[in-house]
Amino acid sequence: MSDELLVVRAQLGNRAALEDLVTRWQRPVWLYVRRMLDAERADDVAQEAWIAVVRALPRLREPDRFAPWLFTIVRRATLNRMRRQYADRHDLVGDFESDVDRPHDGIRDPVDGLMDRAEMVARLAGIPVLEREVLVLHYLEDLSVEDCAQVCGVPAGTVKSRLNRARLMLRAHVEEEGERT
């Protein structure tokens, strides 16, 4: 059964469809939150995000665009928690809100083929929040660049730049480890 059908049924008031939808997306939502926050807070934020999703679900106008809509809400819940957590650390959350698109330097996917998903997940903790977020959404949640842009509320070009920087950082990590071993 497609997500769209589950969403439409949930919007009609079908409780079983809503529960199926939550069950289907529970792990991807949690994984996104976990990549952005520590384990202690991830469960709380995921639950908060689901409450916000259920409250907003009747107003979702495009049931076929459920995934980017879902992650927009999950991202907001995560961001709210990070804002509280790092209230006095402007370096992290301030940049989240007022990111300036840096020019694309034309380097393409230097880490493609260097590592699989599992390796990427293991290295995510060392990547800054903005870049980590697009890596998670694009590579781990399989959202397109356009959907990532919708979720993050930035132009697609910004997402591409962030992905590019993230790949460079990952490559640097890989090379650094290679030199050490």
Partner: peptide, 13 residues
């Protein structure tokens, strides 16, 4: 971080 699972199950959510 790779093999972590959510502590709350879907029915709990």
């Amino acid at each position: 971080m790779t093999n972590e699972e959510p502590r709350a199950s879907a029915p709990e959510i």
